[in-house]
Design a protein around this nucleic acid. Structure first.
Lengths: 159, 159
DNA sequence: CAAAATTAAGTTGTGCACAACTTATCGGGC
DNA sequence: GCCCGATAAGTTGTGCACAACTTAATTTTG
C-alpha cells in the first residue's frame, strides 16, 4: 500500500487508476470551478478566459498592453487571444489599435464600458471562493502550491 | 493586508488581481500539466482526455461500460464523449456496440490493441509526477484538496 | 395497453487551446 | 540602402467542453 501516484512502475499496480491521479483531480477541479463561473459571468456576457483578459487590463487601466504581453500574463498565444479579443471588441469592452512606433504590435485598451464593468464583477471572487468550501488559509496554500507546480513546469520547459 | 482572495468586496481592493486568484492558479496548472502530457501521449497517438477514457476502461477490462457510465466517471457528457470515442474506435483501441437488452445504450470495450497499450503507458504517471517537482506527500495532499473542492461543487449543484 | 414522460446517445453550434503556418514589420549587419 | 533573421499578430485545422437540440428506445402512468 504505497505506490500512490508515483508507484513502482508495474502494470499491475494502481498507478493507472483514475481517482489516484493528481492530474485528473486538477483537470476535474478546474472544470468544476469553470462551471461555477459560467452562470455568474454569463450575466455579464463573459466567458472565463475573457474575464481573465479583463482582469489583466483592469490591473493597469492606463497601460494598453500588447497581445503578446497579455499572452505572457495568461500563457496564451495569439491563436487563442486574437479571436477572443475580437469578440471582446465586438462586445464593446476593449479596443485594439496598431502601435504607432511598431506596426507589428496591437495594443489592447479598455473602453469606458470595459472600465465600468470592473465595479459590477466586484463580488465574483467572493462568490467563487465560497463555492470551493475552503477557508482562506487553505485557499492561499492551494494557490501557492499550484503556482509552484506551474512555475516548475514552465522553468523546465525553457531549458 | 488580508483581503487575499476573499477580500472585502471593494473595487479598490486587490481581489481582482490575477495572481491572487486561486482559480487562475488552477486553470494555469491544469494547462501546464496537459502540456507535459502532450509530447508523452503523442507517442501513443493519444490526447489527454482520450487517455483518461482508457484509464477508466483499463480499471475494469471485462466490463464494457456505457457512454453514460464513462461520462459519470469523467464528468463529461455525450457531446464530448461521442466524437472522442469515435476517434478512439478509429484508432483501433476501443469498440462500441449497442447493448442487447437496452438498445439506447452503447457499450464501450477495449480491443486487444487497446488492452495492450496499458503496459506501454505504464511509466507515464511517474514522468508526470516528477515534472510537478512535488514529493509524494505533497502530491497526495494536493490531490485530496482538489478532490474535496470538486466534490463540494458537485454536491452544491445537485441541490 | 396506449399516451406521456424519461432516458441514452448523437448532432449542431460556439468558444477556447494549441500546433503549424502566413503575412507584415522591424532591426542588425554589410 | 538592402538583405536577412527575428518578431508580432493573425489564420487554419484539430480536438476538446458544453449548451441546446434531435432521435430513438424504454419506462411510467392513466
Amino acid at each position: 500500500m504505497h505506490n500512490l501516484i508515483l508507484g513502482y512502475g508495474s502494470a499491475v499496480t494502481d498507478d493507472l487508476v483514475l481517482r489516484r491521479q493528481v492530474c485528473f483531480a486538477l483537470y476535474a477541479a478546474s472544470r468544476a470551478l469553470t462551471d461555477v463561473y459560467r452562470p455568474i459571468l454569463d450575466e455579464f456576457g463573459l466567458t472565463y478566459p475573457q474575464y481573465l483578459v479583463l482582469l489583466v487590463l483592469w490591473e493597469r487601466p492606463d497601460d494598453a498592453p500588447t497581445v503578446s504581453e497579455l499572452g505572457a500574463e495568461l500563457r496564451l498565444d495569439s491563436g487563442t487571444l486574437s479571436p477572443l479579443l475580437k469578440r471582446l471588441e465586438g462586445a464593446g469592452l476593449v479596443v485594439r489599435r496598431r502601435s504607432a512606433r511598431d506596426e507589428r504590435r496591437v495594443e489592447v485598451g479598455l473602453t469606458e464600458q470595459g472600465r465600468a464593468l470592473r465595479q459590477q464583477v466586484d463580488e465574483v471572487p467572493l462568490q467563487i471562493a465560497r463555492a470551493t468550501g475552503l477557508g482562506i488559509t487553505e485557499l492561499v496554500a492551494l494557490r501557492d502550491t499550484l503556482t509552484r507546480v506551474t512555475d516548475t513546469i514552465h522553468r523546465q520547459k525553457e531549458q
